[in-house]
């Protein structure tokens, strides 16, 4: 079953020098449980595609759907609802709220879903144990190493048991050993929990983790699993 479908998806930015097509004619079907990697040179539209699929950017053309539910033209609130219920994010810069502790950061998505405080604590603690941060529950992000911060971000992405995790260069700020650790973890989540992962990366090592490998150039899909798209 496809979890994400796009049909000629495009995003055009208006610039003083003229229109810029960040992505164009993107038509893909992402099967549930797949590990999709999106690669391509800088400015190829990788992040724009990721953010569009996550409902954070509105496409200017085409359509996309999540579990066959059309999301292209839904209200902002519905997109937010889609994200809080079904999506987890892992960003290169970790995207943690600096004045919240590890456990508070992880509890945030649960709080948005109106889970009781007690339950929030229980779930967040258990997820943080999974990522090996049970001893860092009350640490602020600045008191953690880069690898630990990224694991907090992973815990936050997982805490709502999402069906999708979007990762934008999740290993970009990490040394190679830590990067492998994080990628292994993502793969484990993907395989064990059947969570679909869509990951943007520059790194060929990271890209190798995907079972669906999309390569973008100039906003268009050039290949899927090395099969050239014309």
């Amino acid at each position: 079953m496809d979890i994400i479908n796009t049909n000629n998806l495009g995003k055009t930015y208006l610039h003083k020098d003229g229109k810029v097509d960040a992505i164009k004619n993107i038509t893909i079907a992402v099967e549930k449980g797949s590990f999709v990697t999106i690669t391509g040179p800088s400015g190829s539209g990788k992040t724009t595609l990721l953010l569009t699929l996550a409902g954070l950017i509105r496409p200017t053309s085409g359509a996309f759907s999540f579990l066959e539910k059309e999301l292209t033209h839904v209200h902002d609130c519905e997109l937010a609802q889609f994200r809080r219920k079904n999506v987890g994010f892992i960003m290169q810069s970790f995207a943690l709220i600096p004045y919240l502790t590890t456990i508070q950061n992880v509890m945030m998505p649960l709080a948005l879903n109106k889970i009781s405080k007690q339950k929030q604590k229980e779930i967040a603690t258990s997820v943080l144990e999974t990522v090996g941060l049970e001893n860092r529950l009350n640490h602020l992000p600045r008191e953690l190493s880069a690898g630990q911060q990224q694991r907090v971000a992973i815990a936050r992405a997982m805490v709502n048991s999402p069906s999708l995790i979007f990762a934008d260069e999740p290993t970009g700020n990490l040394d190679p050993m830590l990067a492998v650790e994080i990628l292994d973890f993502l793969k484990e989540i993907n395989e064990k929990n059947k969570i679909t992962v869509i990951m943007v990366t520059h790194s060929p090592v990271a890209a190798a983790y995907g079972n669906v490998k999309i390569h973008l150039d100039k906003g268009e899909i050039k290949s899927i699993n090395e099969k050239i798209i014309k």
Partner: peptide, 16 residues
């Protein structure tokens, strides 16, 4: 801005 962006990213409504 960044924190507000994070909150929006994880599904916080504009009204929230």
């Amino acid at each position: 801005r960044k924190e507000i962006g994070i909150l929006r990213m994880i599904g916080t409504y504009k009204t929230e």
